[in-house]
Simulated scan of single mutants.
Amino acid sequence: DGGGRAVRVALSVAGGGARLRFAPGQWVDLVAPGAPEGSVGGYTIASTPAELARTGTLEVLVRRSAHPMASWINDSMAVGDDVALRVGGAMVLTEAHARKGILAVAGGIGISPIAAMLANAAECATTTAAGGDQALPRAPAPALTLLYSCRRAADFALVDRLENAAEAAEAAGGRLRLVAHVTGDRGGDGGEPSLSRRWEVRSGRVTPQALQEAFDELAARLQRRGNTTEGEGPTTVACGPPAATDAWARALAELRPTPTA
């Protein structure tokens, strides 16, 4: 996935996952039996608690790198190999966050936790989420927006998960708005990303202006549906390369609803 820069790994959890609890946004530390010291790899879970309950599996996206665990996963791991795992991380969303709406921005494989959060918010509007007290509870008419930035058209990952989440949001009477930002030259890598018509495709980086437009559109959507009070904005979350994430976080922290009168 992601133009061959990462591999999607489905982990079948022993016992069907009945004893495993996680919240969207958390990660798993993975280690292969007999692996050398220091080869533990931490990877954010891209799937949802409800999916674990249905299928007994977790999915992670592992970027190709020289890290021992990443190298083993990308180059040596085979179907049926055993790995040990433990859940960690505190970047999760609550029912209150979902009810306020979610504006998410992601870059590269930073899409992993964002995809899980958005999919879970959409799923929980129509089904009861599994995963215990940490799972994002049922929420009405999801109002969600994603701005997803990659350099090349081929680099967009987890597209099927995001489009399925958009379908789930629509089925619940809500919307997940999907906006793809291609920062490189589209003409140099085959043009448009392989995205459905659900996506708005734009050239260039996710700028503060783009974030403000998305924030205002989502806030207006929430206001029309009565999901929030006037002057209150949606929940915001960002994940991607460190420099980009820092810039997005600063811009998101400064967002306020644009006056309409």
Rank of each mutant, 00 (worst) to 15 (best):
residue 6 A to C: 15
residue 9 V to M: 02
residue 10 A to G: 12
residue 12 S to R: 13
residue 13 V to A: 06
residue 16 G to L: 07
residue 16 G to Q: 04
residue 16 G to K: 00
residue 17 G to W: 00
residue 21 R to K: 09
residue 26 Q to L: 05
residue 28 V to M: 11
residue 28 V to Q: 03
residue 29 D to S: 15
residue 34 G to N: 10
residue 36 P to I: 10
residue 36 P to H: 07
residue 37 E to D: 06
residue 43 Y to P: 03
residue 46 A to H: 03
residue 47 S to P: 04
residue 49 P to F: 02
residue 50 A to L: 15
residue 56 G to T: 04
residue 58 L to K: 00
residue 58 L to H: 01
residue 63 R to I: 05
residue 64 R to E: 12
residue 66 A to I: 08
residue 66 A to D: 12
residue 66 A to N: 10
residue 68 P to V: 10
residue 74 N to G: 09
residue 74 N to I: 07
residue 74 N to H: 12
residue 76 S to N: 13
residue 78 A to E: 11
residue 79 V to S: 14
residue 79 V to N: 08
residue 80 G to D: 04
residue 81 D to Q: 14
residue 82 D to G: 11
residue 83 V to H: 02
residue 84 A to T: 08
residue 87 V to A: 12
residue 88 G to I: 01
residue 89 G to S: 12
residue 90 A to W: 07
residue 97 H to R: 10
residue 98 A to D: 04
residue 99 R to Y: 11
residue 99 R to K: 14
residue 100 K to N: 15
residue 101 G to M: 05
residue 102 I to V: 08
residue 104 A to I: 00
residue 107 G to F: 00
residue 111 I to D: 01
residue 112 S to C: 13
residue 114 I to N: 03
residue 116 A to N: 05
residue 116 A to C: 09
residue 117 M to A: 06
residue 117 M to H: 06
residue 118 L to C: 07
residue 120 N to F: 05
residue 121 A to S: 12
residue 123 E to Y: 13
residue 123 E to S: 07
residue 130 A to T: 08
residue 130 A to F: 03
residue 132 G to P: 03
residue 133 D to M: 11
residue 133 D to S: 08
residue 134 Q to K: 12
residue 134 Q to N: 09
residue 136 L to K: 04
residue 136 L to G: 04
residue 141 A to L: 15
residue 143 A to W: 01
residue 147 L to P: 04
residue 148 Y to V: 09
residue 149 S to R: 00
residue 151 R to L: 14
residue 153 A to I: 00
residue 153 A to M: 04
residue 156 F to L: 10
residue 158 L to V: 08
residue 161 R to K: 13
residue 161 R to F: 04
residue 162 L to H: 03
residue 163 E to A: 03
residue 167 E to C: 05
residue 167 E to S: 13
residue 168 A to H: 05
residue 170 E to T: 09
residue 174 G to R: 01
residue 175 R to D: 13
residue 175 R to H: 15
residue 177 R to E: 09
residue 178 L to S: 09
residue 178 L to G: 10
residue 184 G to Y: 02
residue 186 R to S: 03
residue 188 G to T: 05
residue 190 G to E: 03
residue 191 G to T: 02
residue 195 L to F: 06
residue 198 R to C: 11
residue 198 R to W: 06
residue 199 W to S: 00
residue 201 V to L: 12
residue 205 R to S: 07
residue 208 P to M: 01
residue 208 P to F: 03
residue 209 Q to W: 02
residue 209 Q to C: 06
residue 209 Q to F: 06
residue 211 L to S: 04
residue 211 L to V: 02
residue 212 Q to F: 03
residue 217 E to Q: 15
residue 218 L to H: 01
residue 219 A to E: 07
residue 220 A to R: 06
residue 221 R to T: 12
residue 231 G to T: 08
residue 232 E to P: 02
residue 235 T to W: 01
residue 236 T to V: 13
residue 238 A to G: 08
residue 239 C to N: 10
residue 241 P to R: 05
residue 241 P to H: 04
residue 241 P to Q: 07
residue 244 A to Q: 06
residue 245 T to P: 01
residue 248 W to P: 00
residue 249 A to C: 07
residue 250 R to K: 08
residue 251 A to R: 03
residue 252 L to N: 00
residue 252 L to W: 01
residue 254 E to F: 13
residue 254 E to W: 11
residue 255 L to Q: 14
residue 258 T to V: 12
residue 258 T to M: 09
residue 260 T to V: 12
residue 261 A to Q: 08
